Amino acid sequence: MNVPDDPADACESCVTCGDVAVPVRIARLLPDGLALADTGDGIEEISVALVAARPGDTVLVHAKEAIAVVTR
């Protein structure tokens, strides 16, 4: 395993799949911990089960899972 000596040299992507988390805006909450999110290129269904998101919030999404609320 190749680990950089300086944390600043670490990649900003997921170590398991190489994807990055992207910011999206929550358009509408759905049942069962799901939401419709505006990606800027369209609307996608994502999971918000791990965060306390509200419509209008910007969240970071990785693999269709919101992992952090960035702005309210």
Rank of each mutant, 00 (worst) to 15 (best):
L50V: 00
T71G: 05
A49Y: 02
R28Q: 15
I67G: 01
D57H: 15
V15R: 05
V48F: 04
R54H: 15
L30Q: 13
T58S: 03
N2I: 07
D19M: 07
C17D: 14
N2W: 08
P4K: 11
L29T: 14
G42N: 07
A37G: 08
D57R: 09
C11Q: 09
V20S: 08
V70L: 15
A52R: 10
P4E: 09
D57A: 11
L36K: 15
V24D: 03
C14H: 04
S13N: 08
D6I: 08
A63F: 09
C17L: 12
V69T: 12
G33Q: 05
D38N: 14
P31S: 06
D32E: 13
D19F: 11
A68I: 00
D6G: 05
C14S: 06
R72Q: 15
M1S: 12
V3H: 13
V70E: 13
P31R: 03
M1I: 06
V69C: 05
G18W: 10
V15G: 10
T16C: 02
A37R: 02
L34E: 12
V69W: 05
R72H: 15
A35S: 13
I26P: 07
L34D: 08
A21E: 06
P23N: 01
D41A: 12
G40R: 08
A53P: 04
V48Q: 02
G40E: 09
P23C: 00
D6L: 09
A53G: 06
G33Y: 02
A8K: 11
L60F: 03
V48Y: 03
D32A: 08
H62G: 00
S47Y: 01
I46Y: 07
R54D: 14
A27I: 01
L29C: 14
G40H: 07
A66P: 05
V59E: 06
A68K: 14
G56M: 10
V70P: 00
T39C: 04
R54V: 07
V20K: 12
A66Y: 08
A37Q: 07
G42C: 09
L60W: 08
E45N: 02
A27Q: 14
I67R: 13
V3N: 09
V69P: 08
I46F: 07
T39K: 06
V15I: 00
G18D: 09
V59Q: 05
S13E: 05
T16N: 11
G42V: 07
H62C: 10
I46V: 10
T16M: 09
P7W: 08
S47Q: 08
L34R: 15
R72E: 14
D57T: 04
